[in-house]
Design a binder for these strands. Sequence first.
DNA 1: CCGATGTGTCTAGACATATCGAAATGTTGA
DNA 2: TCAACATTTCGATATGTCTAGACACATCGG
Lengths: 103, 103
Amino acid sequence: MNRNYSRAIPAEWRAMSKVFEALGDEHRQRLVLSFEPGERLNVSQLAEVSTLARSTVSHHLKILREAGVLESEKTGKEVWYWINKAWLMQVFEDVTEHLRKRL
Amino acid sequence: MNRNYSRAIPAEWRAMSKVFEALGDEHRQRLVLSFEPGERLNVSQLAEVSTLARSTVSHHLKILREAGVLESEKTGKEVWYWINKAWLMQVFEDVTEHLRKRL
DNA sequence: CCGATGTGTCTAGACATATCGAAATGTTGA
DNA sequence: TCAACATTTCGATATGTCTAGACACATCGG
């Protein structure tokens, strides 16, 4: 048994922690699932398909961005979001690997 | 763009949803990380290393069990918990695969 | 410069979750 | 049967999150 409960969370779990938190919400899952491969969407488009108010969508996008799930870039008035696919897959694989070897 | 925001969440995401929610909490992460490979731990042992009250630990274990992260079995007075490793790895791999192919 | 547009922030209320201690439940052994 | 033990449930409170609308800020076109 690993007794030092308060020790640092492993790096791959720490990164994953934010992702777990971000993707634990169903609305945020649906936002992520609105993307097609390689696609970039702006806030208006995402708010349009969502059932939520635009400000609420903005709030959820912020959480997804801070978790590293989404990336964003502002061009003119619009802010375009896309899935941080490579990084996200890497984090998932790291956690799977940690699970395989250590737990 | 996938416009039907309210459609059903894919099966592998639905299973993952509970896992995300369960592992989004740092205390629950620490509980899971207390296990060594193949090990079974009871509530008292987990409560002992935790900084939380016994009843609170029990509450978190219930969430982890309902999410499928942990399994449990009662033998006599004690309830033993262990990580549902094979299933958990499968779910992670399914999500990674969905991410690779569809997003 | 001004109005229209796209986005983010702030606020407040509703709602959900976390937490602990006490009480209840179930189990074992004397 | 009874006392001790392990765990869960319950009640109360504190804390955090979700949500919409009002407002602020930046950008673009006229």
